[in-house]
Each structure stands twice: as C-alpha cells, then as structure tokens.
Amino acid sequence: MIAGLAVDVLLAAGSLGLALGVIRARRVFTAIALFIAHGLLLALAWVRLDALDVALTEAAIGAGLSGVLLLAARHRLARGGSERTTEAPGRVATIFIGLGCACITVALGYAVLALPKPAPGLAAEVAANLAATELGNPVTGVLMVFRGLDTLLEAAVLVLAVIGVWSLAPDATWRGTPGAPWPAVTDGPRALLARLLPPIGIVVAVHILWVGADAPGGKFQAAAILAAMGLLVWFAGLVRVPPTASWPLRATIAAGPALFMAIGLAGLAVEGAFLAYPEGLVKPTILIVEFVLAASVAAALALLVMGAPSRDAPP
C-alpha cells in the first residue's frame, strides 16, 4: 500500500516535472525528448491505473509513434531552415494566460475531487453481458461489441487522415512515395536494428493481437507495433514504400474499415441491427475483423508518420 503510493507519487512528480520541462524548453528538440520521456512515465501511470490496454497503447502511440513523428518533423524543419513562428504574446498577456490556465487546473482538480462516491459506471453491466460477446477481455468486448460503432468510425477517421495528409503534398510530388526518402544503410546500428527487430516485432504484434480477445492487447497495440517495425525498416532505407497512387497500398488501408462495415451491414440484413454479429459466431467474426483491421490500421499509422510525399533531399 505504502510502496504503491510511493510509486504513484514518484510517477506523478516525474511526469509533472517533465511536462513543465517541455514548456520551459528553449529548443524544440529538448521539448520533444522530454515529451517522449513523459509518455513513457505515463505508460507506467496507466499500469498503476489498472489500464494495461491503455498502457500498451500509450507507450506505442503516445510516446513511440508520436515521438518518431515529431523528431522526424523537427529534423526536416531544421534542415529546411525556416519554421514559421507566430508572435509571442506580451508579458502581461502571458501572465493572464497563465492565470487562466491555473484557474482551469484548479477547477478541474476540484471537479475530480468532487466526483460522486461510490463512482457510477458500467463495470457491472459489462460483467453481466461479457459472456454474450464470447470474449475474455472486457475492453475488447466494449471496443468490438458494445461500442463497435466508435471503433469502426475511428478506423474510418484514420483513412480520412491519410487522405488529408496526402492532400497536403505539393501538386508536383503528390503521386510519389510518402514521406521524405531515406538513404539505404547497409551497415551500422540502424541497419542492425532494421534487420534484427522486425521478425521479433511481428511475432510480438501477432501475439498481442491474438491474446487481445482474452487478455490485455488487441488491434491498436498490435497495429502500432507493426507500424513501428515498418518505420524502422523504412528509416534504414531497406524498403521502398509504394507511391500514393499504388492500388494495393490504398486497398490495404481501406480493407479493414470496409470489411468491418460490410460485416456490420450483414448484421443488419441477418440480425436486423447494424453491427449485430451472427449468434454463435461472435468470436470468430470479431477475430477476423480484428486481424484485417490491425493490418489496415498498421499501414495507416505508418503512412501517417511518413507524411505527405515530398521532394526533400535525403538527410
């Protein structure tokens, strides 16, 4: 109990210190590095909050992919030279903004303390209905069955984000390969990692996907790991990404949400409600959707990190 509290306090203090470091940092690079460290501490905080599914996702997406995305962006901006900056607010304005933000924090903190006890929630409802989902992991049950619509829409949002990012490319290069090209490295640490890790990563991702039905894990975590492996190989210049015009690439991104929606519509035809799964086949159906969705989400996440096709020279 005491040990747990000590860990919590250390985590919270560390995370708070890093967050303050982020906004005090003079260089963007420092801020990003501190932010990544902050994300890793948060992943531990999620473990302490008994949210292992979220912890995995936070580590993989919140710290990992976001960190890579931001570092790569800073790298490209540093080479390009000019990042547009907006005017800083004056001293008085800054003080007022600071006071305003402090007020929001205090009000929010008070609200958190004033939440009703015992806490209302849906844990009992989930427990009572989990058997019908044929799944052991309640979070996966919520994501795929009770709130399947949110998951479906979110997968569609990722497709939309890829379209949005690609649409930001200049006309001259938009049909090229996503992101700035990286030179191939044949030896050195980057090549070592790029050759050694992906097989392990893929095994881990498939494992996490597979156990996700009954234990912490699932498609988002698996997809994030797969995306990270893809990015590693890409940064080492070992693979060429197909151009944005490539049909197989586009079909890969769209397949997961399209299949999910098709199954949802089949549920409408057979069972009379969108996203109603066929009785007795709930778990197999969900597993099929999760596998295809994981592949699509992984592709979308990796492409989102790579960014719009650009003609930047290699670093």
């Binding site: 599914d53 979220v54 929630g121 849906l122 844990a123 989930v126 709130r147 949110d150």
Partner: peptide, 10 residues
C-alpha cells in the same frame, strides 16, 4: 471500468 478505458483507447 472497461467502458471509459475503451473510450480512451479510441
């Protein structure tokens, strides 16, 4: 509560 946890993931 698994419901808000799932919502956080999304």
């Amino acid at each position: 509560d698994p419901v808000p946890q799932a919502v956080i993931l999304t």
